[in-house]
């Protein structure tokens, strides 16, 4: 049932983008907007198949730019690149501890704005950047790390809930436990 899992990831992205736009508290407190998509893509890349990563990159960037002055789909390539980078190196990335989850989210939050800004500048747009952008970037990094801490358990729970259940035996019938005769002595 990974299709349903993908669907729930997209729903999470839709809700996260909406709250990013509608909720003023983080912006009023920190002076910066925190993007939840890098953290969500990171967690999706750890747990979901490549088609879910593709769907999240496409729909996430299109939804986000539809509420923004950004050109349509500007974050599509950076999001996909981030997702593939994590997905292809998943075996060499530690993601089971809070510290490593936060660090991974922070790295995702570091890379995404840089890649998106580069694309914006390459396509001839003039975004508002200045010294204050460094502060906004720093807030985005920490925020993305915190988002990752929230998204990891959420997507783990979703994955477990949406997973295909065994039809007959709820236990593994193929494995036989072989013990040494000493065990029975």
């Amino acid at each position: 049932m990974k299709a349903f899992f993908t669907f729930t990831i997209l729903l999470t992205a839709l809700a996260a983008i909406f709250f990013e736009s509608a909720c003023q508290i983080p912006r009023n407190l920190t002076g910066a907007q925190i993007d939840p998509l890098p953290a969500l893509m990171l967690v999706a890349a750890v747990r979901a198949p490549v088609m879910a990563i593709t769907a999240l990159a496409i729909m996430g960037s299109l939804w986000q730019s539809s509420l923004s002055s950004d050109p349509l789909g500007i974050s599509m390539l950076p999001l996909f690149a981030l997702g593939m980078l994590v997905h292809l190196n998943i075996k060499s990335i530690s993601h089971h501890h809070i510290g490593s989850r936060f660090a991974l989210g922070a790295i995702a939050g570091t890379l995404m704005p840089i890649l998106t800004l580069c694309l914006l500048l390459l396509t001839g747009h003039q975004p508002m950047i200045g010294l204050y952008s460094l502060w906004q970037w720093a807030v985005g990094i920490i925020g993305s790390g915190l988002f990752a801490l929230g998204f990891f358990p959420w997507l783990e729970w979703l994955d477990r809930t949406m997973e295909e259940q065994p039809f007959a035996a709820p236990y593994d019938t193929t494995t036989k436990i072989i013990r040494s005769p000493k065990f029975y002595e």
Partner: peptide
């Protein structure tokens, strides 16, 4: 697929881009 879509999106005319933005914002 992603490369193709990103290229198409970034090369759309302002009018088509605005129409697509309207369509995608209707999800909200």
């Amino acid at each position: 697929l992603v490369l193709l879509l990103a290229t198409v999106c970034l090369n759309l005319s302002p009018d088509s881009s605005a129409r697509l933005k309207r369509a995608f914002s209707s999800f909200f």
